[in-house]
Design a protein around this nucleic acid. Structure first.
Length: 494
RNA sequence: GGCCCCUUCGUCUAGCGGUCUAGGACACCACCCUUUCAAGGUGGAUACACGGGUUCGAGUCCCGUAGGGGUCACCA
């Protein structure tokens, strides 16, 4: 039997980082077994539908390399893959359950439901539907239908006994049926709830393994009962651990975004990570290693290597804090492993997004210096954006930035004067030549490396932190370097 | 609160009854290197939640307790 897994998000907004991991595990299981990975869109809540979400979702999945074998834009033998286009199936099966006596029509209004719950709250009873319509006689039902009253279809949960659910990671989980509800299967607008749609579709689409967030565990017995009521053979269920806030205090939420130790907001959407310049390879490596381990004490691995040894049963069932710091480190590792030209190409759009016009020759010149300094691609803009700014707008840095430890304006200006002369006399203008020429002068000029290179750095970059000074100079070119040094001298003497 | 899940360093984790004086990684600290910032090198500190069992032997199995998390919609 070929393995078929699915990722079934609802298009209500951007893709959550946790959703991407759920998709990844599903994809890994299918791909590691030579099976199919299906994308299904669960848009059964008309009130929360976001028309832009589907595109965003597919973009994020493709960015991460999780191409689906069946689903929107690619089709497949079990379509359509959008639930709002499959209403007839859900209605058919919901009414089938009613005909079998396993579900019933409920005519209770939202107002009555609210009243029931308020009454229960007053008596300190747990909330829930009181099953009023479950006991309606055939005549009473017929009468309400004749009146044209709207209704929902509810599942007739067994009142006694236990529902035993199987989870691959946890074994058997038993629930007392008496604690379970008569859940709504079909809403009054004719749309199914998640519970009905997920069971019907997983069956119809021949899904063999359901990997979903463990938030679904509480409604799992309902699903088990549904599968049994239909008489269908269940897929294997795996409830995935949830990624919590970095401090472990709760789910990573969109409304209260988590913060790191510096008070910076930690993004929860995949698109935020794309925008910050995380590499998809690093992101996949990272997500795969939260809840699952490659083994051999290895933390850096390719997705192909992961596929070769992936086994769902090895997933760790306990929730985990979202290790952001590790993601940054991993992304840095992947950046450092990139070929220089590749990195330069990936960096280009980030400079452009910041409004700079990118000269690829310049970018390639400075890229090796940036490579060991980045955790994200976007950080390159803060570090080296000045290289791509219009030279005409360059303003000489202020004194206090220029003047290094144990130096003053006069000595700094003097050093810069000598530097101008040295560069002008230099036959070549590249990092190695500059380094050799300047290194030879420190003792003669009575300064140390830190002082000399420091004043030069600030003079050409106007930044205290920058890529290495001579790489920066080479990238700027000789005329611009000299111009900036003279500007600094003028600034110091002014 | 009811129900359900989970519990090894600050964090992600290895461990599936003896090889554990508990291994790796991130973060942290120190030192080295050094042109700022990084990267790199070396070293260091830090964990089996607690209490009972089972067993010759428990981080590993069982039961309690505690803690954390999830969930209680005509949302998914």
């Amino acid at each position: 039997m070929t393995v078929r897994t699915r990722f079934a998000p609802s298009p209500t907004g951007s893709l959550h980082i946790g959703g991407l991991r759920t998709a990844l595990f599903n994809w890994m299981l299918a791909k590691s077994k030579g099976g199919q990975f299906i994308l299904r869109i669960e848009d059964t809540d008309q009130t929360r539908f976001d028309p832009t979400a589907l595109q965003t979702l597919m973009e994020a999945l493709r960015w991460a390399g999780l191409q689906w074998d069946e689903g929107p834009e690619v089709g497949g033998a079990y379509g359509p893959y959008v639930q709002s286009e499959r209403l007839a199936h859900y209605q058919e099966w919901a009414h089938w359950l009613v005909a079998q006596g396993k579900a019933y029509k409920c005519f209770c209004t939202p107002e009555r439901l609210k009243q029931v719950n308020e009454e229960k709250a007053r008596r300190k009873q747990p909330p829930g539907y009181d099953r009023f319509c479950r006991n309606l006689s055939a005549a009473e039902v017929a009468e309400r239908e004749a009146q044209g009253l709207p209704y929902v279809i509810r599942f007739k949960m067994p009142l006694t006994g236990k529902t035993v659910a199987q989870d691959l990671l946890r074994g058997e989980i038993a629930f007392d049926n008496s604690t379970l509800q008569d859940a709504v299967l079909l809403k009054s607008d004719g749309f199914p709830t998640y519970h009905l749609a997920v069971v019907v579709d997983d069956y119809l689409m021949k899904i063999t393994h359901v990997l979903r967030a463990n938030e679904w565990l509480p409604s799992y017995p309902l699903h088990v009962q549904l599968w049994q009521a239909f008489g269908w053979e269940m897929p294997v269920f795996v409830h995935l651990p949830v990624m919590l806030n970095p401090n472990g205090s709760g789910k990573m939420s969109k409304r209260n975004p988590p913060k790191d130790q510096h008070g910076n907001i930690i993004p929860v959407f995949v698109h935020d990570y794309m925008r910050e310049g995380y590499l998809p390879e690093a992101m996949v490596n990272f997500l795969a290693s939260v809840g699952w381990t490659f083994g051999e004490d290895r933390d850096v691995f390719s997705v192909e290597e992961a596929l070769a040894r992936f086994n769902v049963a090895d997933i760790n069932p306990n929730n985990s804090a979202f290790p952001v710091e590790k993601l940054g480190w991993l992304n840095g590792v992947y950046i450092r492993n990139l070929a220089v030209d590749d990195l330069a190409e990936r960096l280009k759009p980030f400079f452009e997004a910041a409004g700079y016009t990118v000269d690829m020759d310049k970018l390639r010149t400075i890229t090796p210096a940036l490579q060991t300094r980045l955790k994200t691609l976007r950080e390159a803009v803060d570090l080296a954006g000045f290289l791509f700014a219009d030279y005409a707008t360059f303003a000489a840095p202020p004194h206090d930035l220029l003047i290094q430890k144990k130096m003053d304006a006069a000595s700094s200006a003097a050093i810069l004067q000598k530097s101008v002369a040295l560069i002008e006399a230099l036959p070549a203008f590249d990092t190695a030549s500059l380094l050799a020429a300047f290194s030879a002068k420190t003792s003669e000029w009575g300064v140390n490396n830190s002082q000399l290179f420091g004043v030069l750095r600030v003079a050409v970059s106007a930044q205290k932190i920058s890529p290495p000074t001579f790489e920066t100079m080479e990238t700027l070119g000789k005329p611009e370097t000299l111009r900036r040094l003279r500007l600094a001298i003028a600034s110091l003497s002014g």
